[in-house]
Design a protein around this nucleic acid. Structure first.
Lengths: 238, 238
DNA sequence: GGCCAATGTTACAGATATGTGACAACTATG
DNA sequence: CATAGTTGTCACATATCTGTAACATTGGCC
């Protein structure tokens, strides 16, 4: 848990795709969002937005209800149908305050709804609340050189194939993958994998490194655990 | 073995805990929520709510800003600090429309915010949107890998064949299927399946996992409940 | 090459964790 | 208040992990 908090804090900045045709509002929101630490992409039409969403996905969408061409609601509806974009958090922006609109909006799978005129600070608060709720997708995931550790599921997969690791080997690999390249001596490994209060022989580390290598061997990944002669061991990415 | 009555409260699909001191509003919301298919629990103070949350958790909280004694914001803040309740979705309800309040509210970890007077339909739409975002199924149907749970009917079918599960096994499977892949340790399972006010041995979890596996066995589904050695258990989809 | 220290490897016995069956107490319900 | 079902614990059986020591191999240095 404490780990997750840290992971969130150091997470790279969240990206927001802002889909709004009125330049004034777009600029104002871009300014406010940027100042709040978000990276902002802009689109002035639904069509342009869909093109942008073909590639790397943003963390959240802000969509204006009224857009030239395809409407915001229609865009939201379509995004929900596509598995690639289905789980993107969406906040809808609109000038109309009628309840029917809100309900239609929610029905199309929108996560939140803000009525113009609104305060940028409130919008940002809602953006933050939604991102907090969604969590960053790769949270709790360690990946490097085809080795993936899902810390929540407590599972390791190599090129998609699940692998079985003993508890100690799991923690050992976790440490290595958290600090790729870095070499640890045996004392450090004992400290960080076994814990401070336990006394075990330093050579025991060697045995567990061997066991970890054995587990990675069938996938041809054992060479990633390198020996640093006279020092200890390190994880070597591709 | 002093069992807390609260812990025995049966929980059906999509339970909402409504924390509101004004009887009129409470009744109105209870009516609207019930008609929308939610099971509603009520509290008229933050203190009572906290007591209720010691047992099995509802799916969502609706908290009034103004409460006698501990305020709604303070309650939200406290719930966020406790890992047991930290991830509960919260909607804050308030008569004040001032922006500062909203921001304070969001800062305390609230997911959404609705200003009185509001339309019950909008509130329900927001409840649904939030539950959808969190991953709670709206229709009370959980399905994965051929196992289907009807949370309303309290019934499990595997590939169409009905199965009988004890109450505890049912809640256990419900938790697992709500969080596929994720590994839970025994303390977490006790917390979330038994409720935190109950004290039972950790090994008791093992026995119920065994019983759950036995129930799934005739359908060849027992391998979906995986042991994570040194940690606990997890649900593994196909 | 020969030597030494560092590391790789194996085997194993003890320690831990988990699976399982039995049972008595408890609950709900009619 | 009797019955059928459920619950939590325990004791014992298995399965898996752990640390160590002994021996094998490697790498560097003279």
């Amino acid at each position: 848990m404490a780990l997750n908090r840290d992971a969130l804090r150091t997470k790279m900045t969240n990206t927001v795709l802002l889909i709004e045709d009125e330049p004034d509002i777009r600029d104002m929101l871009n300014f406010a969002l940027s100042r709040a630490g978000f990276q902002v992409w802009e689109s002035d039409t639904a069509e342009d937005a869909m093109r942008k969403l073909d590639g790397l996905l943003p963390n959240l969408l802000i969509i204006d209800w009224m857009l030239p061409g395809m409407s915001g609601v229609e865009l939201a509806r379509r995004l929900r149908l596509d598995t690639h974009t289905a789980s993107l958090p969406i906040i809808m922006l609109t000038a109309r305050g009628e309840e029917a609109d809100k309900l239609k909006s929610f029905d199309s799978g929108v996560d939140d709804y803000v009525v113009k005129p609104f305060s940028p600070r409130e919008l940002i608060a809602r953006v933050r609340a939604l991102l907090r709720r969604v969590g960053t997708p790769e949270d709790g995931l360690l990946e490097n050189s085809g080795i993936r550790m899902d810390l929540n599921a407590h599972q390791v997969t190599i090129n998609g194939e699940p692998t079985k690791l003993g508890p100690t080997e799991f923690r050992l690999l976790e440490l290595f993958m958290n600090h790729p390249e870095r070499a640890f001596d045996r004392a450090q490994l004992l400290d960080r994998v076994w814990g401070r209060s336990v006394y075990v022989e330093e050579r025991t580390v060697d045995v567990h490194v061997l066991r970890l290598r054995k587990a990675l061997k069938p996938f041809g990944m054992s060479q990633h655990i390198e020996t640093v002669r006279g020092v200890g061991y390190r994880f070597a990415p591709e």
